[in-house]
Simulated assay, not measured.
Amino acid sequence: MKTYCRSLLGALALALATTSPLLAQQEAADNGTDPTKLRRTFWTSYEHMDLGTDASRGTFKLMYETPVSPKTSLRLTLPAVAIEAPGVDPGMEFGDIALRATHLLSVTRDRGIVLQGEVFADTAGRPELGYGTIVLKGTVIYAKFLQGGRIFAPAVSHAQSVGGDRQIRETTVDFYYVPKLPDPAWYMTVDPAIIGDWENDRLYSSIAVTTGRAVGKIGGGVAQVYLKPSVLVGGDRPADWAIEAGFRVIGF
């Protein structure tokens, strides 16, 4: 699995460096970073997370999102998860399948309000590979469109378990920011967050920076690759750092 991850990261890094400027100019209008734009999207990604104390988790995901009305879209996530730790079966198995609905409550030239509701099914092959119960998650996003094409879109989300033996109560305050880059082929998001795990009395923070680039056209949409390193901060953090590599096609 680690060899696969290194190969994927290397291929993505090469693709990031070799994209044509013409494609960038054609697709500057929508690179997938605006949370108020609904578009048909397909993702595949792999994330390696360092859990500390000689443990790590690898997550492979397939995701598909499609608008079902002018203001609403649905996204399905199919994960496969493996944990490498002493005394733990390292085999990869299904994680918790998730279905998310996104609704554009109000969008103007200056700002947008987006609502999201997501359900995580208790489908993991082993208890440590998922929540261990059904979880509902609600999110409110307020997107402010700034001068020069920049976006600041803070969000508040809360995840809550429904039934089952394991209790989940987690709130996240997210400060999503999209800068405007000189080369429109490239995009970047900066994503600091504060997370409260109320069930385990934990409070910690994280920051993730995503850098991506358009690499071609597929099926009428734009293909992109991206890298997303992140770090977690605080004595209560459940992990130390992570890196995600992905490929997606948007707007097909």
Rank of each mutant, 00 (worst) to 15 (best):
T3C: 13
L8M: 10
A11R: 15
L12H: 15
A13K: 13
A17P: 05
A17W: 14
P21H: 03
A24T: 02
Q25V: 06
E27Q: 05
A28I: 03
A29R: 11
A29S: 11
D30T: 04
D30C: 09
T33F: 11
D34S: 00
P35K: 05
R39W: 15
F42V: 13
F42M: 03
S45G: 12
L51N: 11
G52F: 03
S56Q: 07
R57Y: 09
G58S: 11
G58A: 13
L62V: 07
M63C: 02
P67K: 07
T72K: 12
L76R: 07
A80P: 04
A82R: 07
E84S: 13
G87C: 15
D89V: 08
G91F: 05
M92I: 11
F94W: 13
G95T: 02
R109H: 14
I113E: 02
Q116A: 10
F120C: 03
G130V: 03
G130W: 00
Y131H: 08
Y131W: 08
A143P: 01
Q147P: 10
Q147I: 09
G148S: 05
F152D: 00
F152S: 07
F152W: 01
A153V: 10
A153C: 12
V156G: 13
R166H: 11
R166L: 06
R169H: 15
F175Q: 07
Y176H: 06
Y177G: 04
P179E: 03
W186H: 15
Y187R: 04
T189C: 03
D191W: 01
P192W: 03
P192Q: 02
A193Q: 06
I195P: 01
I195A: 04
D197T: 05
E199G: 00
E199H: 09
D201E: 09
R202V: 08
A208E: 08
G220Y: 11
G220V: 01
G220F: 07
G221D: 10
Y226W: 08
L227W: 01
K228S: 09
K228N: 04
P229R: 01
S230A: 09
S230T: 12
V233T: 05
D236V: 09
D236T: 11
P238K: 05
P238W: 12
A239K: 09
W241M: 14
W241P: 00
V249E: 03
I250G: 02
G251R: 04
